[in-house]
Amino acid sequence: MQLDLLAQGPPQTPQDPPDEVWGVVWVWLQYGLWITLAASILSFIILGALLVLDKNRGEAVSAVGAHVRFLQISLGVMIASGAVTIAGYFV
């Protein structure tokens, strides 16, 4: 009698995992979302702090500090790589 209550059949199709699996995956995706959001906010705060600390701000573009140049390039790469995903979303 107890085996009848505890026994579960296999999923209806191999592509449909149990609800517990979906729940665990969803929780981990939410953790990843919050970690990514916190990292992006922190990176912009650090970028702003480095721009404030840049001593060559008022001079020619070629006189920008190496760390600020690296951040400008990495920010440009991040925006350029995200453009395809954003364009794909609207198409």
Rank of each mutant, 00 (worst) to 15 (best):
31 Y>C: 15
30 Q>M: 14
79 I>Y: 04
43 S>D: 13
8 Q>Y: 01
26 W>Q: 15
90 F>G: 00
53 L>V: 00
74 S>P: 01
64 V>F: 04
11 P>V: 02
73 I>R: 06
29 L>P: 01
91 V>W: 15
57 R>C: 09
62 S>L: 07
88 G>R: 08
23 G>F: 02
59 E>A: 05
24 V>I: 13
64 V>W: 08
37 L>A: 14
33 L>I: 12
52 V>Y: 15
2 Q>C: 09
69 R>M: 00
25 V>G: 01
2 Q>N: 10
37 L>F: 15
1 M>G: 06
3 L>H: 11
16 D>N: 10
26 W>V: 12
17 P>Y: 09
50 L>G: 00
42 L>K: 05
80 A>F: 11
18 P>C: 03
23 G>L: 03
70 F>Q: 04
78 M>C: 06
45 I>N: 06
11 P>M: 02
52 V>E: 08
49 A>P: 00
89 Y>H: 13
32 G>K: 05
49 A>M: 10
21 V>Y: 09
84 V>I: 14
75 L>R: 08
82 G>K: 00
18 P>W: 02
31 Y>G: 05
2 Q>W: 04
14 P>H: 02
44 F>G: 13
84 V>D: 02
32 G>F: 09
57 R>Y: 09
91 V>G: 15
74 S>D: 06
3 L>G: 03
86 I>A: 13
23 G>M: 05
58 G>T: 05
66 A>G: 01
84 V>P: 02
